[in-house]
């Protein structure tokens, strides 16, 4: 069980993109790569319209599909609760991307230590390194409206409940998005509307097939065939068994 959580309160987001830029700074991302994506939701008709900006990044599942399908064991759980990629182990096979129930794991061109371009899984780390040193993730520390807050797991859950009660009048459908099906997440969202409005599934789950792959097929296969061959086979399995197809990226 990790110790920290982040709450993204979409009812307080003004869409200023400061978190995106602060995140790019922290993680050395080029201008066209971002761990954070945005989608706008407009509900109602002029002039009775509500506008909500949804800032979306990796949820850091307690029971993470990406961790299970990775043939290289490049994805792991940090003691902070973050789900992190070891880019040196990653081979860019895209299983994580194809199987993430939220479309958040992405394989992109990154630079290795020698400065060569290589395909690597690239996603929010919940600023794991900073957090381990007792600091706050870059996005949360630059957010002046406190739409992003970070803290001890239980305190954040409490804060979310408290905020939910406060916004219910204005947003009757408001809810906390912390899907049980993936064991709960370390980035949770206070959504103003039903998850479907943000292209999120209410009942996102870890597919059973992923568990089987991780826990049985992969260790055995690796032993017999070696990692590279398994990667090829794994690709076929994972695509067939639990590829959701093209993810619709909200707002992108």
């Amino acid at each position: 069980m990790g110790q920290y959580r982040m709450l993204v309160d979409v009812t307080k987001c003004i869409g200023c993109y400061s978190c995106r830029v602060a995140c790019q700074m922290e993680n050395d991302l080029p201008p066209d790569q971002s761990y954070i994506s945005f989608c706008e939701v407009e509900k109602g008709e002029y002039p009775n319209v509500e506008w909500v900006m949804h800032r979306f990044s990796c949820l850091h599942c307690e029971d993470a599909v990406c961790e299970k399908v990775c043939p290289q064991n490049a994805i792991s759980y940090s003691q902070t609760g973050a789900v992190v990629v070891d880019q040196e182990q990653c081979i860019g096979c895209e299983y994580c991307e194809k199987n993430c129930p939220f479309g958040r794991a992405k394989v992109e061109l990154c630079q290795d230590k020698e400065g060569n371009s290589v395909s690597r899984a690239n996603k929010c780390t919940l600023c794991n390194g900073k957090v381990l040193e007792g600091m706050t993730p870059a996005c949360a520390s630059t957010c002046y409206t406190e739409a992003i807050v970070f803290g001890e797991s239980d305190e954040i859950l409490q804060k979310a409940e408290q905020r939910l009660a406060e916004v219910k009048d204005r947003y009757p459908d408001a809810n906390i998005y912390n899907p049980e099906g993936v064991g709960g997440t370390h980035t949770i969202y206070l959504l103003a509307h039903k998850p479907e409005e943000y292209d999120l599934e209410s009942d996102a789950t870890t597919p059973a097939s992923a568990i089987i792959w991780k826990d049985y097929a992969q260790p055995l296969g690796k032993l017999l065939l070696g990692a590279t061959t398994m990667a090829v086979i794994g690709g076929a399995i994972s695509n067939r068994l639990f590829n959701k197809g093209e993810h619709h990226e909200g707002g992108e």
Binding site: V21, M25, E26, D28, L29, P30, P31, Q111, K113, G115
Partner: peptide, 17 residues
């Protein structure tokens, strides 16, 4: 013509651009 830096600790968005 080259990535700006290979210093992995540079907290700048264009570090590798």
């Amino acid at each position: 013509y080259k990535p700006w830096t290979t210093d992995q600790t540079a907290a700048l968005p264009f570090a590798q651009s």
